[in-house]
């Protein structure tokens, strides 16, 4: 029993550092996650249920935030899952008064639904094309980030949380975008020119140091070859404040 506990703790610690280990641990505990979801739904969850996805995400949150002083991991994770599912239920309840697009129209024999009568403004084929192009850009970006020793999960962990910090980083990115030699130096040396960015943008060098990996990702997006992603974060690249 003690060995199991120690093994679980070791796996959790490893999962905190390595996303692949985290995925493995989640896969390993899928029966537990299903069971907790079933307790909430009072039925077996299907793989398409959003509740199951949210329960898995809650389990991931539990892995990230767990420490031994919080008690047994599984109890902690169960509480986390239940809380998340309740939050989601309350959030979804706000939309209960709305009519479903799948609601039948006329007699049920006709088999027509509301969705059949609504004009679909989306262009699925175009969207699929854009999505594919975006996917390629992201794959390219991820590969290029590997050269800098940075992963997307690292960027997510290292991204600024406070508005003031985010504004300082965006200021530095704008400065780099307006000074091509800075970007060239960045690509050539594969190091973020923190001193130049700090001096040129007038921000604290220490602030930029703390978010170096985030700057790597955004500065790479600013270089040529990432048109779609640049379009997505145009607000930043124009030098505007993040909303």
């Amino acid at each position: 029993m003690k060995l199991d506990v120690h093994r679980l703790l070791a796996e959790i610690n490893e999962a905190k550092k390595d996303p692949r280990a985290c995925d493995r641990l989640i896969e390993q505990y899928m029966p537990f996650i299903r069971s907790e979801t079933a307790k909430f739904l009072k039925r077996d969850p299907s793989p398409e249920d959003d509740e199951l996805s949210i329960a898995m995400f809650a389990f991931y949150e539990a892995i990230r935030s767990y420490s031994p002083i919080k008690g047994a991991f599984l109890k902690f994770a169960a509480l986390q899952i239940r809380s998340r599912l309740i939050d989601n239920y309350r959030k979804e309840r706000r939309h209960q008064g709305q009519v479903s697009l799948d609601a039948p129209i006329g007699s049920e024999d006709d088999g027509l639904t509301l969705m059949d009568t609504v004009q679909d403004e989306s262009r699925p084929f175009e969207e699929l094309g854009v999505r594919e192009a975006t996917r390629q850009e992201i794959a390219h970006l991820t590969a290029q980030m590997e050269e800098f020793g940075v992963k997307l999960t690292d960027v997510a962990d290292n991204a600024p949380q406070q508005q003031r910090t985010l504004a300082a980083c965006q200021k530095a990115v704008c400065y780099a975008r307006n000074n091509k030699d800075v970007l060239d130096e960045f690509l050539r040396t594969k190091r973020v020119p923190l001193t130049r960015l700090a001096e040129g943008a007038g921000v604290e060098k220490k602030t930029l140091e703390r978010h170096r990996r985030y700057l790597v990702a955004v500065l790479l997006v600013c270089t040529n070859g990432y048109e779609i992603m640049r379009g997505h974060i145009m607000q930043v690249l124009k030098g505007g404040e993040a909303s």
Binding site: R131, A156, A159, L166, Q170, Y214, A217, V218, I233, Q235
Partner: peptide, 16 residues
């Protein structure tokens, strides 16, 4: 759109 990179629940998303 503000270039924040965040974690979210994977509600059957696809990359891109």
């Amino acid at each position: 759109e503000a270039s924040r990179v965040v974690y979210a629940a994977n509600l059957h998303y696809e990359v891109g």
